[in-house]
Amino acid sequence: MGLLAILLALVLVLFLGERKRRRREGEKGHGGWINKGSGERRLGRSASDEKLMTDISEWLDKYKVYGIEELRQATSDFDYSRLIQGTVYKGTIDGEVFAIKKMKWNACDELKILQKVNHTNLVKLEGFCIDPEDGTCYLVYEYVENGSLHSWLHDTTPTRRLDWRSRLRIALDLAHGLQYIHEHTWPRVVHKDIKSSNVLLDSKLRAKIANFGLAKTGINAVTTHIVGTQGYIAPEYLADGLVTTRMDVFAYGVVLLELISGKEAVSEDGEALWVEAEAVFHTREANVVAWMDPVLREQSCPVDSVVTVLNVALACLQRDPSKRPTMVDVAYTLSKADEQFADYSGDGLSVGSEDVPVVAR
């Protein structure tokens, strides 16, 4: 399948919303015809189509266009054994490993956003593919070796557990990634689906934000179509459909609670973790050590550092979005906490089972 056919497929699928293309010999449509047997093509385009082709050419300059057969070979024809999570498969192309995401919806918005972001704490898009037979879109990402933060925190039989230094660095990496999309893109990007399963860890356990499928550009928008994951959705978005960067800040606060407590964002009883934390830490007498992940209590872990991160989490989880910190503020605070941790002697928990107050509310 030539590049011209891939371009046509991308126009039809991404911009005109067609999910199926009929490809029968001699069939007419879209201003021309395709002769499958001879390989001849004649494509007539309107002025609007010409503009769309120009837009796509910008993506082609930045990303590699893969053939569908190339991806099928890379994933053993999308065999179940290659499945990573959801509709993401592990594939090997020319000796290099990639994560190949089969899209369930129109990939246009995600491509538009991904083509303008580039940061070490965001999963990098390497290329894409359009299946000419059915118009399915595939996005090809860098492969992040150590999987999701969710699996590290919540799998029942993990191979190893994260220590506090790793968790603090993950929190800081995630803050830097969000700071970038909130402050250094224009228009600003709202991820809308920050959660521990969308935070991936590389070979050095550094964090990268994945899955921009729900992301939107612009701020202070209102929608009636509420999407997201239970336990991470900001109250103002759930109630009024208000889309701002502060909804990412709220979800980030939930991830911090997961890092501290080792608990899921929603309990088996359906209670949100942020609601539990709000109830537990509404007074200065709350016992932070008792609420920490038991794994951390068994390790050498400075409680003062945990309290700092907990205070950041509670600030991010303010019900009034205007009272939440920006990711600039969060990144600065956590950077200081990381510097202080470097001076920690490693003598273990500093307070045992004593009460440790949460100092900033």
Rank of each mutant, 00 (worst) to 15 (best):
K336E: 04
A342Y: 05
P294K: 14
V280E: 13
T217L: 14
M247W: 08
A272G: 00
G213T: 07
L349P: 01
L257Q: 02
E285M: 11
S335K: 12
V306T: 06
T283R: 14
F250T: 00
A215Q: 10
E278F: 05
A279V: 03
Y232W: 14
V328R: 15
G262V: 04
Y237P: 00
S322C: 05
L334N: 01
T308R: 15
V288I: 15
D269W: 05
F281I: 05
A207T: 06
M247Q: 14
E268L: 12
A286W: 09
I209G: 01
E298Q: 15
C316I: 04
W291M: 06
L349R: 12
N211R: 12
L296R: 10
V303N: 03
A286R: 06
V312H: 11
S305K: 09
A279M: 10
D320A: 09
M292T: 02
S335Q: 09
P235C: 11
G241T: 05
A265I: 03
G218W: 13
V255H: 10
G231S: 04
I226P: 01
A234F: 12
C316N: 05
A315R: 13
D329V: 07
V266I: 10
V254Y: 11
E268H: 10
V275H: 09
S345N: 03
D240G: 00
K216S: 06
A265F: 04
H225G: 00
G231I: 05
F341C: 01
T229E: 05
D329R: 13
K216P: 00
W291E: 02
E276A: 07
P321Y: 15
S335W: 06
D338A: 14
E236P: 02
T326P: 03
P294M: 13
S345H: 10
G348M: 11
E285I: 07
A279S: 09
E298A: 14
S322D: 07
T333A: 13
L310D: 02
A251M: 08
D329K: 13
L273I: 03
L242C: 07
K263D: 01
E339L: 15
W274L: 02
Q299P: 00
C301E: 01
E276Q: 09
G213P: 02
N220G: 03
S305M: 09
E339S: 11
S345Q: 10
D269R: 11
L259C: 07
R324P: 00
V227P: 00
N287G: 02
T229A: 08
L334Y: 04
G262K: 10
Q230P: 00
Q230A: 12
K216R: 15
A277Q: 04
T229K: 08
C316M: 06
N220I: 04
N311V: 01
D248R: 11
T217I: 12
V255A: 06
A207P: 03
